[in-house]
C-alpha cells in the first residue's frame, strides 16, 4: 500500500484528505506542523508528500528546502496544496523542486486524480 504524508496546520484539511485518499486505497499519515512532518517523513519514508505552504514555524518552503537538501529524501515527490494562489508562490515552490500544485478550496476528485498521476 502506497504511503502518503500530508502536512497542513489546518486539522480539517488533513481529515478531508485522509478520508478521500484512504477510500482510494492509500495509507495516510498526517502532521499539523512542518517540524512534525519532517520527522515523520524521515521515519516513514512515504511515497508522496502533500504539503501546505503557509504554516507557522517551519513553513512549506522550509520543508521543501530540507527535503531537497537530503540525498535520502529528495526523490520523494511533493504535491503542494495551498490557499496561496500567487504566481510567484507557485513558481518558487516549483523552482524548489515541488512536482505539482493544487489550490484550496480543492475538489476531492481533482486531488484523487492528481495523486493517481504519481503512481
Amino acid at each position: 500500500m502506497k504511503k502518503i504524508i500530508i502536512i497542513d496546520d489546518e486539522n480539517y484539511v488533513n481529515r478531508l484528505v485522509q478520508f478521500n485518499l484512504t477510500e482510494d486505497g492509500y495509507e495516510i499519515i498526517t502532521a499539523l506542523t512542518g517540524q512534525d512532518g519532517l520527522r515523520l517523513i524521515e521515519e516513514k519514508k512515504p511515497d508522496l508528500i502533500i504539503l501546505d505552504i503557509a504554516m507557522p514555524g517551519v513553513d512549506g518552503f522550509m520543508v521543501l528546502e530540507r527535503l531537497k537538501g537530503s540525498e535520502e529524501l529528495r526523490n520523494i515527490p511533493v504535491l503542494i496544496l495551498t490557499a496561496k494562489v500567487m504566481d510567484e508562490v507557485e513558481q518558487k515552490a516549483m523552482d524548489m523542486g515541488a512536482d505539482a500544485f493544487i489550490t484550496k478550496p480543492f475538489s476531492p476528485a481533482e486531488l484523487s486524480k492528481k495523486v493517481k498521476e504519481f503512481f
Binding site: 489546518e10 486539522n11 480539517y12 484539511v13 481529515r15 478531508l16 478520508f19 478521500n20 490557499a83 484550496k104 478550496p105 476531492p108
Partner: peptide, 16 residues
C-alpha cells in the same frame, strides 16, 4: 467532503 468532527467542519466552513 467528509468530516467526523463539528469543530473541524466549522474550521472548514469558515475558510471554504
Amino acid at each position: 467532503f467528509f468530516l467526523d468532527d463539528v469543530n473541524d467542519a466549522i474550521a472548514m466552513l469558515r475558510s471554504e
